[in-house]
């Protein structure tokens, strides 16, 4: 394992809704208390690194009941998670490896399905891509973006500021018109 959430420095309050693992690649440890584990490998980016994260988790979970899904993209990962959770019982844990963008989207699906924060863990291999939700037209724009960058909205073309504010329900970053004050 390359590191855990607890090893990184305390975060500035500025990022209270932005998980640390969506700002820099981090791998959280498995929860040995879980009874059944869903491990989702989203191979939408660096396949080798993602595989290595999952291999580390599987080794740590040797002997436990594990459902391992390899998914090509976020929507396949969300579908795999939702499928597993239909019959899941309390005691279940979910681990997601892949890009931060995929992890945020799968976390949102987990939250909507009733999972608590202490039932989910993430292994992030890349934080380059972000999804931005336009507060003015509700369109989502996916692009290689850093926090505080500006991006043209794919829906209304307004220039959106990528605000360091992430919705737990959707996994998207808040975007609002950056040049609204220019007459």
């Amino acid at each position: 394992m390359t590191g855990t959430a607890t090893e990184s420095a305390p975060h500035p309050p500025h990022y209270t809704s932005v998980p640390d693992w969506s700002r820099e690649p981090l791998v959280q440890p498995v929860d040995p208390l879980g009874r059944v584990h869903t491990v989702i490998e989203v191979v939408d980016g660096d396949r080798v690194a993602t595989r290595a994260v999952v291999a580390g988790w599987l080794a740590a979970l040797a002997g436990a009941q594990v459902r391992h899904h390899t998914c090509e993209d976020t929507s396949a990962a969300v579908a795999a998670l939702e499928d597993d959770l239909v019959a899941a019982r309390v005691g279940h844990r979910v681990l997601v490896a892949g890009s931060a963008d995929a992890c945020l989207a799968v976390r949102a699906a987990g939250v909507r399905a009733g999972l608590a924060d202490d039932e989910m863990g993430f292994g992030v291999v890349s934080v380059a891509t972000r999804t931005v939700w336009c507060v003015h037209c509700s369109a989502a724009t996916v692009a290689e973006l850093a926090l505080d960058d500006v991006v043209a909205c794919s829906g209304c073309t307004r220039n959106l500021l990528v605000y360091p504010h992430v919705s737990r329900r959707t996994g998207q970053h808040l975007g609002f018109m950056v040049d609204a004050e220019e007459a």
Binding site: P13, H14, Y15, T16, S17, V18, V111, W133, V135, Y163, P164, H165, S167, R168, R169, L174
Partner: peptide, 17 residues
Amino acid sequence: WSVSFDVGMTMDEIHNP
């Protein structure tokens, strides 16, 4: 701020900036 975006968040998360 946007109610639609912030619903479901903790107080801490909403007040981040």
